[in-house]
Design a protein around this nucleic acid. Structure first.
Length: 320
DNA sequence: AACGAAGTCAACCGCCATTAA
DNA sequence: TTTAATGGCGGTTGACTTCGT
C-alpha cells in the first residue's frame, strides 16, 4: 500500500549546505544512475532528506546552471513571461535555459519589481500604476481597482488572499487568448535550445569531464582548462554558498560551456576522463561558445550532452 | 569604526498533482 | 479503486551581506 515515507526527518540536517555535502551529492548524482531522491541521501551518505537534496541539486549544483545576474534580455524575457504566466516561476524558468525557478523568483522580487515600479508599471498587473493618491484614506485600504492590488499593499478587509498567485488573470492581451499553461508561443525564440525542466541524473559511465594539459584555446572557444586531474571538490569553505562565484571552487564547473573547437579539432578523446574524486579542483575556464553542429551529433538532454559512442563520455556544459 | 537598515538569495515549508503499491 | 509517497511548485523565512548614517 502506498510507498514508504520520504524520510523520517529525525536527525536530519537543515540549513546551508557545506562544501563537503555538496561534493557528496554531486559525486553521487554524477556517479549513479537515476534513482529516486528519497534514496539519495542515504546512498550518498548525507544527513539530509531527499527533498533537500533535490532542491540543492536543481537550484545550485546542476552543471547546466548559468548563474550570475540576469542579463537585460533575460529580465525582459522574465517580464514578458510573467505578464502571461503570472507567478508560475517554473514555467517561466522552462523558457530560460540555465535559470532556475527559484533564481527567477528571487530576481523578480528583489530587482524587477522595483524597476517596474520606478518605471510606473505595476509589477503585478503589468499596467501603468495609478498616480499616487494625494489624500490617502486613513486606516483603510484604498479601493481596489479592477487591475488588482499590489501584494505589498496594506491588508485589505476583503477576503482576497494576499498572495500574488492570483495575479495570473491579469494579463496582456496576448495572454488573454487563454493560451494553455505550457503554450507561451513567443518566447522560445529568445533562447532556442534547452529546457531546464528536466534534469537527468547521469549514467555513471557516461561521465566525461574536462581535462587539461595546459592547452588553452581562444577565449571564445576555450575548452576546459584544468591542468591536473583534480576533483570537482567543493571543499574549501564550510558554507559554500557564502562564497562569491569567483571564489567558490564549484562555480567554474557550473560555468563550463560547450567546447566546440576542442571537438572539432579532434581533441575529444583527449578530454575524456573518468569521473572520480580526483578531478578538477582547479578552476576551469568558462567559455561562451556553444556549437550546434556538434550538439546535433549528440543527444542533448537539458544541458548535458551524451556522446552516442559507447563508453565513458559525457560533456557537462552550460546550455546557454 | 560601529551600528542599524535594507537588500539579497539559499533553503525551508506546506500544498497539490501524480503515481506506485 | 484506494491509499499514501513522491516530486514539483510557489510562498516565505532567515542568515548573510551591503549600504547608509
Amino acid at each position: 500500500m502506498g510507498r514508504q515515507p520520504c524520510c523520517d526527518k529525525v536527525g536530519l540536517k537543515k540549513g546551508p549546505w557545506t562544501a563537503e555535502e555538496d561534493q557528496k551529492l554531486v559525486s553521487f548524482i554524477l556517479g549513479n544512475r537515476q534513482c529516486c531522491w528519497r534514496a539519495v541521501p542515504k546512498l550518498a551518505g548525507l544527513l539530509r532528506c531527499g527533498k533537500s537534496c533535490r532542491l540543492r541539486w536543481t537550484n545550485y549544483l546542476r552543471p547546466d546552471l548559468k548563474r550570475g545576474l540576469l542579463s537585460d534580455a533575460e529580465e525582459k524575457l522574465v517580464i514578458d513571461l510573467h505578464a502571461q504566466l503570472g507567478n508560475r516561476w517554473s514555467k517561466i524558468a522552462s523558457h530560460m535555459p540555465g535559470r532556475t525557478d527559484n533564481e527567477i523568483k528571487n530576481h523578480w522580487n528583489t530587482h524587477i519589481k522595483k524597476k517596474l515600479r520606478k518605471m510606473g508599471i505595476d509589477p503585478l498587473t503589468h499596467k501603468p500604476l495609478p498616480p499616487p493618491d494625494p489624500h490617502p484614506p486613513k486606516d483603510q485600504s484604498p479601493p481596489h481597482t479592477a487591475t488588482g492590488g499590489s501584494p505589498e499593499a496594506p491588508p485589505s478587509p476583503s477576503p482576497k488572499p494576499p498572495q500574488e498567485k492570483t495575479a495570473v488573470p491579469v494579463m496582456t492581451p496576448a495572454s488573454q487568448q487563454e493560451a494553455g499553461d505550457d503554450d507561451v508561443p513567443i518566447l522560445s525564440n529568445y533562447y532556442p535550445g534547452f529546457c531546464t525542466d528536466e534534469v537527468p541524473m547521469m549514467d555513471p559511465d557516461e561521465i566525461m569531464v574536462p581535462l587539461g594539459d595546459g592547452r588553452t584555446a581562444p577565449p571564445t572557444s576555450t575548452i576546459f582548462s584544468t591542468t591536473t586531474t583534480t576533483s570537482y571538490s567543493a571543499a574549501s569553505d564550510s558554507v559554500s554558498s557564502s562564497l562569491s562565484r569567483d571564489e567558490d571552487p564549484l562555480f567554474p564547473l557550473m560555468d563550463l560551456e560547450f567546447p566546440d573547437i576542442a571537438f572539432q579539432m579532434g581533441l575529444l578523446d583527449d578530454m575524456v576522463a573518468s569521473w572520480d574524486d580526483s578531478l578538477a579542483q582547479q578552476p576551469l575556464s568558462p567559455s561562451p561558445v556553444y556549437d550546434d553542429d556538434y550538439a546535433n551529433q549528440l543527444q542533448i538532454r537539458s544541458g548535458v550532452a551524451f556522446d552516442q559512442e559507447p563508453g565513458n563520455k559525457i560533456v557537462l556544459f552550460s546550455s546557454y
